[in-house]
Amino acid sequence: MTQSQEPPPAPRDGGNHDAAPLAHHFDSLKQQYDSAKLGMWVFLITEVLFFSGLFCWYAVFRANHPDVFVDGHHFLETPLGAFNTAVLIFSSLTMALAVRSAQLGRRAPLIGLLSVTLLCGLVFLGVKTAEYRQKWHHRLVPGQARIEYFFSAKRTDGVSAPPAKEFLPEGEGQAQYRQYVRQHLAHAGEEILTEEQLQGRIANLRSFMGIYFTLTGLHALHVIIGMGVIFWILVGAIRGRFGPRRFTAVDLVGLYWHLVDLIWIYLFPLLYLIH
């Protein structure tokens, strides 16, 4: 850090879009870029460790209750999961290409590729929503009764207490629910004979759906955040804010998006591909 002379006047925004403005506390663009990139990598590490809690939860349950997963995965649509995997991988490609375009200073491809990436994110979320809706319809969402209660007028009528933290709905819904579980498992080639078996399956399903919704829900949240920042750099790209020496933001968002993809690459077999 040669501070003997004044640092070169930092090019401010406007005029030169090829090089990033140099913040006052850095000496060179390289130093600034490397700092940002290292910072992003360290942040990605925190993300890995964040998800490690979920994977640990999964691993402990899978080791001790393998039947939970065998029963539960019958209720997921493997083709949808596989399709979503392909969509995310494709979006990763377009993101990687977008970073390349930014590095090469090609504005039009950059805008196009970012838009495609964003679109892929939307498709992913769309499929996810369809899957979630189906689960909601069959009352497979953990805490569904409590969520319904929260959004209903009952919450404020002063009489009704919140439903217990139970998975099974009350009354008529329960009969339907039992019927659905029974039928679905029969469809998957498993005949449920006794009430005890059915109870066991329902308990398993409840554990599995807890894991499924928490894992995919948190992943989906990351997808949404990723789409938010992609939208932000898309706006920047349209305004011509990136250039061969000014692509840090695209690069970092790309890293984030790839990590989101990477996590899904594990979630897919762990949740959908079970025997």
Binding site: S28, L93, A96, L97, R100, Q103, T248
Partner: peptide
């Protein structure tokens, strides 16, 4: 470690490697 700090003032030190198109497509 990244950016040995005494990298002198340099306009054309490349910031990062540009990955070849072919490689990206193959990986995909």
């Amino acid at each position: 470690t990244p950016s040995a700090p005494n990298s002198a003032s340099q306009a054309d030190v490349p910031l990062a490697h540009v990955v070849e198109l072919r490689i990206l497509l193959t990986v995909f």
